[in-house]
């Protein structure tokens, strides 16, 4: 029981990280990045590639990946989003657009990595398990949780203590008002988009250690899981995501212990229940009319 709870909390923090990027992009641009899970997958394969070919430590690989994907994120924003926002129904069309992108990423990844599942040696961060309240937890989970907490702390600092972060929050509150008060909406949004992608990559770099085997078609499942996490928290509120992740992680682990054959229902059931009975999410205040 104790082990279940502890691993639920740890894995929950990780799921929080996984939802964070998706939620951030939605919060700022009101578009749904259905390719989110595929970016997570790319992050995972980056680590796999670095480790298996160059024998690089995953943390170094993560650093390199972040630079690459921050650089990819910005042109990606300018290529897609401004055009999308001009259309009649950007929110709905973003679902389709990013679904297309996710197909492209998945197929390219299948060409590059094949379709077999790959794993990264989980003892790369040390094989000695860590003792938490008398339960031994594998080192790789601890690293994944630390990375998640770091990323969350970064997000907090960015949003509340930098100028551009405050501008970002202004856009999240009201896009047109922000625009009229002289904020360069596209520049701020582009950076937010790149950060959202980078967060997905960060979560991805830890998936081989938390979720096991990685394969190109895993993106879809990861996207739906991320959705469940952010809806439980509250859509558009980055901090709520952490709470969503925790609730999701603990529920999942409890189900795996007591009702394993129904465990895959957890994300969807939580999602529907929260949507219907507390439409603003657990931490949300605003109306849930996106």
């Amino acid at each position: 029981m104790l082990f279940t709870l502890i691993s639920g909390i740890l894995i929950g923090i990780f799921y929080g990280l996984m939802g964070l990027g998706l939620n951030f992009i939605f919060g700022v641009m009101k578009i749904v990045n259905l390719a989110h899970g595929d970016f997570v997958m790319l992050g995972a394969f980056g680590v796999y590639l670095a480790y298996s070919v160059w024998n690089l430590n995953p943390l170094i690989a993560l650093g390199i990946e972040l630079v690459i994907f921050l650089a990819i994120g910005i042109p990606l924003y300018y290529g897609f989003v401004p055009r999308l926002l001009k259309s009649r129904d950007p929110e709905m069309l973003s679902l389709i657009l990013f679904f297309g992108l996710s197909q492209v990423i998945e197929s390219l990844a299948s060409f590059a990595f094949g379709t077999n599942p790959d794993t990264v040696n989980p003892t790369v961060f040390g094989s000695q398990p860590v003792n938490i309240f008398g339960q031994s937890i594998q080192m790789s989970w601890i690293v994944a949780v630390l990375i998640s907490l770091l990323a969350m702390a970064f997000m907090y600092g960015y949003l509340y203590h930098t100028k551009i972060g405050i501008a970002t929050r202004a856009i999240m509150g009201h896009r047109t008002e922000a625009m009229s008060s002289g904020i360069n909406v596209h520049r701020v949004s582009a950076i937010a988009f790149a950060i959202g992608i980078a967060l997905a990559i960060t979560a991805g770099s830890m998936t081989p250690f938390v979720l096991g085997g990685i394969y190109p078609s895993m993106g879809v499942d990861l996207t739906t899981t991320s959705f469940a996490v952010i809806v439980i928290g509250s859509l558009g509120n980055p901090l709520g995501t952490i709470l969503g992740g925790l609730i999701y992680g603990i529920c999942l682990m409890l189900m795996q212990t007591y009702l394993p054959s129904w465990s895959s229902l957890v994300p969807y059931l939580l999602l529907i229940l929260i949507l219907l009975f507390r439409p603003s999410g657990l931490l949300g205040r605003r109306e849930r009319n996106a």
């Binding site: 279940t4 499942d221 682990m253 394993p260």
Partner: peptide, 17 residues
């Protein structure tokens, strides 16, 4: 003797149990 969904990817808790 326990059945899990085929989509299960994280077995840590199951292995523990």
């Amino acid at each position: 003797n326990t059945g899990v969904p085929t989509s299960t990817s994280n077995y840590s808790v199951l292995v523990h149990n």
